[in-house]
């Protein structure tokens, strides 16, 4: 530990600064290490991939080279089809996810607040949360056709129930003592809701978003695999029909990368929202 101020007495402040400096340096080194391992794991996958092809462990005719996948990526990017597919997928997820979350927050509060609503909804929730969203796809296609409506309904459903469960659990698990403290300071119902309940629930709502987004994304691809003209799933079906292996593998990789990126975005927001909580690693 070194002080950045030379000479003179080590005041409380300068020693504290020094501690913060060391702490930051350690953090930075850890971050660099993490990035290093991240790259290393990707390189490992690439090596296994190419060695597998070279040694004919996997059939090189069925499994494209990494370079071929990259070429497919560049080509699709250039002719605009990739962006069109991704756009279609994003819009569906965004609409379905948003509708589901908003619905879950509202119903979550009603359940937490009114006993009657809880008693009525509880068994329904238990049933529907056990029902995988993909199971609804055939039914929805018959009801609403293969257009956007059926997909968005399935996605809304997919994001709604996991979020509802998280929010509801959080709501009934709230510490009553903070509400009590606020009441003795004179908080009215609205202030209780806005200043006591919402701040405690906020981290849980973000967790709910994270869970829902994951489920939504998985369901989206399934829905697109079955019936869609545009979307990453549709792109893969098309590639499959024409036996184009590079775009097919590209689709798989894209889905993985996009879920990863979305999850890290939500996690970053989550970290900020829960900065005040004690139990964080």
């Amino acid at each position: 530990m070194e002080s950045d101020k030379e000479g003179g007495l080590m005041t409380d402040h300068s020693s504290r600064d020094a501690v913060i400096q060391t702490f930051k340096a350690v953090k930075k080194r850890q971050q660099i290490e993490k990035i290093g391992y991240f790259i290393a794991s990707f390189v490992l996958v690439l090596v296994v991939w190419e060695v597998g092809r070279a040694t004919h462990l996997v059939n090189p005719k069925l499994f494209p080279s990494f370079a071929a996948v990259c070429r497919a990526f560049v080509q699709f990017l250039k002719d605009g089809t990739l962006l069109a597919h991704m756009y279609a997928s994003f819009v569906r997820v965004l609409i379905g996810f948003s509708l589901g979350i908003v619905g879950a927050v509202i119903l979550g509060f009603l359940i937490g607040w009114f006993r009657v609503v809880r008693l009525i909804v509880d068994p329904l929730v238990s049933f529907f949360r056990a029902l995988p969203p993909i199971a609804l796809i055939p039914l929805m296609i018959i009801f609403f056709g293969i257009g956007e409506t059926s997909k968005i309904i399935v996605l809304t459903y997919a994001s709604f129930f996991p979020a509802l469960v998280v929010i509801y659990q959080a709501l009934i698990g709230l510490e009553p003592i903070y509400g009590r403290a606020a009441q003795t300071l004179g908080a009215n119902n609205w202030e209780m809701f806005r200043k006591i309940i919402l701040p405690q629930l906020y981290p849980h709502i973000i967790t709910a978003c994270r869970v829902s987004l994951g489920v939504c994304w998985a369901t989206l691809v399934a829905a697109e695999l079955i019936a869609a003209q545009k979307g990453i799933g549709a792109m893969m079906v098309e590639a499959q029909n024409f036996f184009q292996m590079a775009p097919l593998v590209l689709g798989v990789l894209l889905i993985g990368v996009i879920s990863l990126v979305m999850d890290s975005i939500v996690r970053a927001i989550e970290r900020r929202a829960t900065a005040w909580q004690e139990k964080r690693t």
Binding site: Y178, A181, L185, E191, W276
Partner: peptide, 28 residues
Amino acid sequence: GVVFQQYAIFPWLTVVENVAFGLKLAAN
């Protein structure tokens, strides 16, 4: 006014915000 045995200060608020909490309510 109550001072609780388990403190019960709001963990999502800073020290100033905790002390100012009551003063910012409509009741006070």
